[in-house]
């Protein structure tokens, strides 16, 4: 049986004076997996993420952390936030300190670690996010990409079991985007559960283990990338686009150029390999 680190059961939430941000949401996050949340702006992804971290409390329904119902007293919250970190979309809202090293040390010190241990955590976090050279830089002179990495380091320093990333790749150039995605992959290999929201269907398709599609505060569907993106009705309903790789593959398959019973390629390289293996280019008229 698979182990679930986070679970939302019939969770509803509305901001004051607004319609429901979350409407009877049921979602299970499997431990050690890469889960991507897709959905248009205002679908309720960020609101759900804040519930996972115990910042917002559900108005209806229940949340579970490691199969235990979430409690909202100080001790339980400490425990939850120690295990589930969240990296916010805008790094400027997260960075409070004037100095990178101090910013990263905030979390570990709150966990009650001593100075020596905190130093170790900070060093590892800065090292693994590749920003060791920024250690003594003031946060307000950093570029957007650098700030983003500092916010990620400040969460990693707390060594959580699961990390939530709210649109980690927005505003990033292609190179840094790729770096972040590779880095998340690396984190996941080490056993961290990664939950992220994005608008980039290509990233979602090639990277996720599970995709959750949301709209208007509801979960439309949860499933593997193949299942989600081969469901045309769902894609239409959630205002998503088909990933380019899948679209090319389908086109080739429908025209009889590729055999029917093949597993659809997930990445650019897999697609290239498929094209080469079937000698498609050589067979062109």
């Amino acid at each position: 049986m698979s182990e679930y680190i986070l679970e939302a059961k019939d969770v509803s939430f509305a901001y004051p004076g607004c319609t429901k941000a979350l409407d009877n949401i049921c979602v299970k996050i499997e431990k050690g997996k890469k889960i991507v949340f897709l959905g248009e702006n205002g679908a309720g992804k960020s609101t759900l993420f804040l519930h996972f971290n115990g910042i917002l409390t559900p108005q209806k329904g229940k949340l579970f952390f490691k199969n235990q119902e979430m409690k909202y007293d100080n001790k339980s919250l400490m425990n939850l936030r120690k295990s589930v970190g969240i990296v916010f979309q805008d790094p400027d809202t997260q960075l409070f300190s004037a100095n990178v090293c101090q910013e990263v040390s905030f979390g570990p010190l709150n966990l009650g670690l001593c100075v020596e241990e905190t130093k170790k955590c900070v060093d590892t976090a800065l090292e693994s996010t590749g920003i060791n050279d920024l250690r003594n830089k003031p946060t307000h002179f950093l570029s957007y990409g650098q700030k983003k990495r500092v916010t990620i380091a400040s969460i990693i320093a707390m060594n959580p079991e699961a990390i939530i990333f709210d649109e980690p790749t927005t505003y990033l150039d292609p190179k840094h985007k790729e770096q972040i995605i590779d880095f998340l992959e690396e984190l996941n290999q080490k056993g961290t559960t990664i939950i992220l929201s994005t608008h980039d269907v290509n990233v979602a398709y090639s990277w996720a283990d599970t995709i959750v599609v949301m709209k208007n505060g509801k979960v439309l569907k949860e499933g593997t990338p193949d299942v989600i993106f081969n469901n045309d009705e769902l894609i239409e309903k959630a205002n998503l686009k088909k990933p380019l790789i899948l679209e090319i593959y389908n086109e080739l398959k429908n025209n009889g150029i590729l055999p029917e019973n093949h597993r659809p390629p997930r990445t650019k390289n897999e697609l290239k390999q498929l094209i080469n293996n079937h000698n498609i280019i050589k067979n062109l008229p």
């Binding site: 804040l50 919250l77 905030f106 709150n110 966990l111």
Partner: peptide
């Protein structure tokens, strides 16, 4: 709004009323 967002992000990192940071 910024102040509010900042508070949320501090809370998510186990903020307990003290801004504990490492001194250089």
């Amino acid at each position: 709004k910024k102040a509010n967002d900042l508070f949320i992000s501090l809370e998510s990192r186990c903020y307990n009323g003290n801004l504990n940071i490492l001194e250089k």
